[in-house]
Write a protein that binds this DNA or RNA. Structure first.
Length: 316
DNA sequence: TAGTCGTGGGT
DNA sequence: TACCCAAGACT
C-alpha cells in the first residue's frame, strides 16, 4: 500500500490535470534534445547494431552512486583487461577489487565478479537477455536489469533511476523530488508513456536530461527542452519533500572500512594485524569494520594471523 | 522499510 | 568549513 502523502499522483493517473501533455507527449522534443546534446560515453555505442551487453552491465554497476566522470577511465581499463564475462570470471576477486580502485562501495566489485562467474557458468558466457535471469545476478536490481535490457539489448525496458524519476516527478507531478523508492504508480505511468518504438533511447534521453539539466540541486530550466510542459516550473518550482540526508561520513564505519581496505589494496600479499591496527585508531570500530569486510567477501583471513583480499573464488 | 555501504568534486 | 550530491542493491 502506498502512503497517499508519498504518492506524487494521489488522485490517480486518470485525474492527472496535464495528462494531455505529459512526458510521453513530449517525446519528440526530448528526442531532438538528446540527439543534439547527448554525451559521447564509451559504453554507448554509436552503432546500435554493435551493442555490448557486458560493457553496459559493467558501466551500470560502476555508475551505481558513482559520477560518470569517475567511471569513464575505470570502465575503459576494466573492459580492456576483461573484455568478456569469462575473462573476469577467470580472474580472482582480489584482482577485481584492486581494479575497482577508488570508485567507492567496493562490494560492487565483488558482486560484479560473482555475476561474471554466474554468467560464465550458467549462461554460456553471454549476458542473459531476460529480466528474471538478470535480476538473479549479484548486484543487479530492478534498475540495472532494465538498463542492461534497454541499453545492452535495445529492449523496451524501464530504467527508473534517480534522474528519470526526478524528471517525471517535476514535469508531470509538479513535485521537486520523487518519493524515496519507486512506486507501482510510477512504473505503470512510465510504461504508459513509453513510446512503442525507440523506448531505449527515450529512457536514455530522460536519464541524460536529469543528469545534465534537471539536476537535483540546481536545475537549469532555461536550457530544458521540456520546460513548456513542466508542471513544477509552472507552479513556480515549489520546494518539495527533500530526500533524507546521507549519514555523516567522518568517523563512520564506512570510513573505517575504507581505511582498512585501502591498506589491503595497496599491498600485494597478506597484511599483518599490526598494519591493520595502524590504519584505524578505535579498536572496537576497527574490529567491527574488519568483520563487515570479511562478511562482504572483501577480506579473508590469511595464515599467521594476517589478512588479504580474496585471491581464490569463494565456493558456490 | 529504513539503514548501510565509499569516494571525491562541487557549492 | 560543512554539507550536498552522484545511472542502487541489499537486508
Amino acid at each position: 500500500m502506498i502512503p497517499p502523502s508519498r504518492d506524487p499522483f494521489p488522485h490517480g493517473s486518470g485525474q492527472f490535470p496535464h495528462e494531455e501533455r505529459d512526458l510521453g507527449a513530449s517525446a519528440g522534443l526530448l528526442a531532438a534534445w538528446f540527439a543534439a546534446r547527448a554525451r559521447d560515453l564509451p559504453w554507448r555505442p554509436t552503432d546500435p547494431l554493435r551493442r555490448h551487453p557486458w560493457g553496459v552491465l559493467v558501466s551500470e554497476v560502476m555508475l551505481q552512486q558513482t559520477p560518470v566522470d569517475r567511471v569513464i577511465p575505470a570502465w575503459t581499463q576494466w573492459m580492456q583487461r576483461w573484455p568478456t564475462p569469462a575473462d573476469l570470471a577467470g580472474a580472482s576477486p582480489a584482482d577485481a577489487i584492486r581494479a575497482w580502485g577508488r570508485l567507492g562501495y567496493p562490494r560492487r566489485a565483488v558482486r560484479l565478479h560473482a555475476a561474471a562467474v554466474a554468467i560464465t557458468e550458467d549462461h554460456g558466457g553471454s549476458v542473459p537477455d531476460d529480466a528474471a535471469s538478470l535480476r538473479a545476478l549479484p548486484g543487479v536490481g530492478e534498475y540495472t536489469a532494465g538498463a542492461v535490457l534497454a541499453f545492452g539489448f535495445g529492449r523496451p525496458a524501464l530504467t527508473l533511476d534517480t534522474n528519470v524519476r526526478r524528471v517525471i516527478a517535476r514535469h508531470d507531478a509538479g513535485q521537486e523530488f520523487p518519493s524515496a523508492s519507486v512506486t507501482v504508480g510510477e512504473r505503470s505511468r512510465a510504461l504508459e508513456m513509453m513510446p512503442s518504438s525507440g523506448a531505449d533511447r527515450w529512457m536514455a534521453a530522460l536519464m541524460e536530461l536529469g543528469a545534465l539539466v534537471c539536476t537535483s540541486r540546481a536545475p537549469d530550466c532555461s536550457r530544458c527542452p521540456l520546460a513548456r510542459g513542466c508542471r513544477w516550473l509552472a507552479l513556480g518550482r515549489p520546494p518539495g519533500n527533500a530526500p533524507r540526508p546521507q549519514a555523516r561520513y567522518a568517523g563512520s564505519d564506512r570510513q573505517a572500512r575504507g581505511a582498512l581496505l585501502a591498506v589491503l589494496r595497496a599491498q600485494e600479499g597478506p597484511v599483518t594485524q599490526r598494519r591493520i591496527d595502524a590504519a584505524w585508531p578505535d579498536a572496537i570500530q576497527r574490529a567491527r569494520a574488519l568483520d563487515g569486510l570479511v562478511a562482504d567477501g572483501l577480506v579473508v583471513p590469511a595464515p599467521r594471523g594476517r589478512w588479504s583480499l580474496p585471491a581464490i573464488n569463494p565456493p558456490g
